[in-house]
Amino acid sequence: MAGVILEARGLDVLLGDYQVLWDARLAVDEGEMVALLGPNGAGKSTLLNTVSGLLRPRAGAITFRGEPIAGLPAHRIVARGLAHVLERRRLFPYLTVEQNVRLGAYAPAARSGREAQLARVKALFPILEERAGQPARTLSGGEQQMVAIARGLMAHPRLLMIDEPFLGLAPRVVTQLVEAIRRINREGVTIVFIEQNVELALSLATRGYVLESGRVVLEGRSAELLRSPEVRRIFLGG
């Protein structure tokens, strides 16, 4: 595929007085599907939150499509085509499904293509049409996750980051979401996602990064990582 779309280097990030990331890095090629792996508290979410502008790194550089974005406010980064679906969906609970999804295209650049994109995400997730007028908080976890991903797609992103898309969902729903994410990727959107289940993550992704205690300890193609004794040590305690 054509070139690097996202590159982060030397990221040091603090939450309050507590340093969560140490010299973290992430490089993603256009069209890839990359998994971030690691135990709880390893700093995976912090890494994504820093890339999307919710957090400011104390040190380090982030470039997206060749331009530096570190330190820009989140709303300006979305407008450049980098969408972020937060952990636990984080829909606007008292707004309807339709209102939630439409707000995904709030950025001026996305607004002109809103109706076309809305039709596209409704084709991907038929639930959006069925539940359009319902407040988002009345949906099940799986349905909420679909709305959250659809809302992210409304920004017409080149890169979509999804934090734990399968957390707490029934296996049948997970299969559905995996299919949807594959399709989004096939249609040209680069994807980075967080997932704790190594097998699931690496069966979906082409490459993976492993974080432990705030540092990137491993990176590689999915097949290599699956065979790696280091991965076994971290995730199976073996």
């Binding site: 919710l54 989140a74 709303h75 937060l86 829909l91 606007f92 609970p93 709030y106 950025a107």
Partner: peptide
């Protein structure tokens, strides 16, 4: 209105609103 909904969104989840491209400030 679009702006009104953005205000509501900001009230309900500040971070998620920022990720929609809403200037929460």
């Amino acid at each position: 209105s679009e702006t009104g909904l953005a205000l509501q969104a900001t009230a309900q989840d500040r971070q998620a609103a920022a990720l929609m491209g809403i200037d929460t400030d």
